[in-house]
Write a protein that binds this DNA or RNA. Structure first.
Lengths: 237, 237
DNA sequence: CGTGGCATTGACGATGATCAATCGATGTGG
DNA sequence: CCACATCGATTGATCATCGTCAATGCCACG
């Protein structure tokens, strides 16, 4: 799929490809970022940082899919977010200058670029636009968190699942017209945790959606005949 | 009510009283804020701003309790936050320079101080510490939103209710030792929405907690014999 | 005294959690 | 190559819980 860009971790290409967090930075800034960054390959399951770790700087996903997990005191882990190429990770911990509150793990093979905390500090101080961009990203993330919190309280499990699938479909590349076909980047257990139900319940929900003709699936492979229908089911019901 | 009796809305006193968001601002900054602010009295039900409103500046709660609601497309309203004296409202919309995404309504009689967008802009530009403080507040709010999102997915309804009550108890004044007695600032419906269940289910949950000796209540008046026991029940189960 | 809003209760059907078993894919060792 | 163990996903059965509809109680207010 996107294995074409392997090796050439270039910020300009990276920012241009998706609508990444750095997309609307002025070109000279991107040049600096490009010089400062250190690329790193990730295998599936590799951790970028863990809950409680001191923040080591800013990370930017260049390939693959990253998962953000949070641990509850009771021990259960919950996936609270998914990051794709172009997205910045660790911005909150960086801005707060405190430890990470989430764990970032690679859900697929991929790569990230890292700017050390030291460099990032200088960068944000010299280029206020970068700082503003980071704040903007956090504000956006916060809007999402709050919206999802509301959705969690106001919508049915089925609607939440449809919404989540819709989001995954929308984010994934390779959607043509209204029909989508993709490989889910997350396990059933993670999926279940993201909408707050048990894996068994998720299985039944999946079967119902299949019975209703909304989706087809086999393992992690998912086919959505009509994305619009999926979105409609995520809105009400 | 009559402007004449309007009290001494003094930022120094306000910041000193609670651990407000302005608490660790340098004194000269507080002086400026004190001059810029315009106080306003609020009756129960008054709206400070509504979803979609352009942000008019920064608001700081000086007395009373404010509720933050969010509307889902389907029409259902959900209370997503509660603000008490010392807390700043509208910081996100101000930083983002966009419309509000929540509606702020007074849950009790109270008062807020407002700094116009124009003044606030000058202030944040001239005093970076104020800007940083606002960002810090947003980051903190985001941590809370994310944590609550996780809690929403990982914990039982009963545990979530205990957690919410514990938070309300902790925030309210007048808790002595381990026993707490307070008047809830929110209706049953709001309470139910905050943990994502129906009012009827909430009623039954309340009764169970009472049967278990965790709480006593009559209308909005709540008595918690052992705050520690309540916190314990919010952790697991 | 009646009315309307809020909270509670009951009854019933729908849904999810839990325990347990099965199935399929994958990987390992003989 | 086959047997075996393992992990993830699914299914079934059962019970607790929640949502829904309806009725009642409570209280403030006109």
């Amino acid at each position: 799929m996107n294995g074409s860009v392997r090796g050439t971790e270039n910020c300009h290409a990276c920012a241009a490809s998706g609508q990444g967090d750095w997309a609307d930075l002025p070109a000279p800034c991107l040049d600096i970022v490009d010089r400062l960054k250190r690329p790193r390959e990730l295998a599936e399951g590799d951790a970028l940082f863990r809950e409680g770790d001191e923040n080591a700087g800013l990370h930017c996903v260049s390939r693959g899919v990253m998962g953000l997990r949070m641990t509850h005191e009771s021990g259960t882990e919950v996936m609270v977010g998914i990051a794709r190429p172009g997205e910045v990770l660790g911005a909150r911990a960086f801005l707060r200058n405190g430890p990470h509150r989430t764990t970032a793990v690679a859900l697929t093979v991929g790569a990230v670029c890292t700017i050390s905390r030291h460099d990032a500090l200088r960068l944000t101080q010299q280029a206020p636009s970068v700082h503003l961009q980071l704040v903007k990203r956090c504000l956006h993330a916060m809007d999402e968190a709050q919206e999802e919190k509301m959705r969690m309280a106001a919508m049915s499990n089925r609607a939440r699942l449809c919404h989540l699938l819709h989001r995954l479909v929308a984010e994934a590349p390779g959607t043509l017209r209204d029909r989508a076909e993709l490989r889910l980047p997350v396990s059933r257990v993670d999926l279940a945790q993201m909408i707050g139900i048990q894996p068994e319940s998720l299985s039944r929900l999946f079967r119902r959606l299949k019975d209703d003709g909304l989706i087809e699936f086999s393992g992690r492979n998912l086919i959505v005949p009509s994305v619009a229908a999926l979105a409609a089911d995520a809105g009400d019901a």
